[in-house]
Amino acid sequence: MEITLVLGDITEQEVDAVVNAANSSLMGGGGVDGAIHRRGGPEILDECRRLRASRYGKGLPTGQAVATTAGRLPARWVIHTVGPVHSRSQDRSELLASCYRESLRVADSLGARSVAFPAISTGIYGWPMDDAARIALETVRQAETSVPDVRFVLFDDRAYAAFASLL
Rank of each mutant, 00 (worst) to 15 (best):
S24C: 10
V153M: 08
I36K: 02
W127D: 06
L26M: 15
V106S: 01
S146W: 13
A75R: 01
D156P: 00
I36H: 07
G123M: 08
R151A: 05
L96W: 03
D130I: 03
L137W: 10
R134D: 11
S121Q: 03
N20F: 08
V140W: 00
G34N: 07
P148M: 06
D149P: 05
A164V: 02
I135E: 09
E12T: 09
I44W: 10
D9G: 10
P42Y: 05
E102A: 07
M1Q: 08
S93E: 15
R52P: 11
V85R: 13
S93G: 15
I10N: 01
M129E: 14
D16H: 00
D9Q: 07
L104E: 04
P148Q: 06
V140Y: 01
S121G: 05
D46E: 15
A143K: 01
I124K: 14
G126R: 02
A17E: 07
S98H: 00
S109K: 02
Y100L: 07
N23K: 06
S89Q: 08
L5H: 07
V18Q: 05
S109I: 01
V115E: 02
V18F: 08
A143M: 04
R92Q: 12
R76C: 01
Y56D: 14
Q13Y: 12
P42S: 14
R134E: 14
D16F: 00
P61A: 14
L26H: 06
S87L: 12
V85G: 00
V85Y: 00
Q64F: 14
S87Y: 10
E47R: 11
C99K: 00
S24T: 10
G57W: 03
A112F: 01
F163N: 00
V19F: 03
I79C: 10
S54T: 15
D131A: 14
V85I: 15
Y56R: 04
L45T: 14
R50E: 15
A53H: 06
R113T: 03
A53N: 12
R88Q: 12
R92D: 12
D157E: 12
Q142R: 15
H80Y: 13
P128M: 08
V66Y: 02
R76P: 01
V147K: 00
Y56G: 12
A164W: 02
R76I: 02
M129N: 12
I135G: 10
E138F: 13
H86S: 09
E14N: 13
H86W: 15
V147T: 06
G57R: 15
L154A: 04
Y160H: 10
G31C: 09
T11Q: 13
E2S: 12
E43R: 13
A107L: 09
V19G: 01
S54G: 07
I120D: 05
R49W: 09
A21Q: 11
V106F: 03
R76E: 08
F117C: 04
D33R: 05
V82D: 12
L154D: 04
A35N: 04
E14P: 03
G28L: 13
V82R: 10
G31Y: 04
A22H: 13
I10V: 09
N20H: 09
A70Y: 03
H86Q: 07
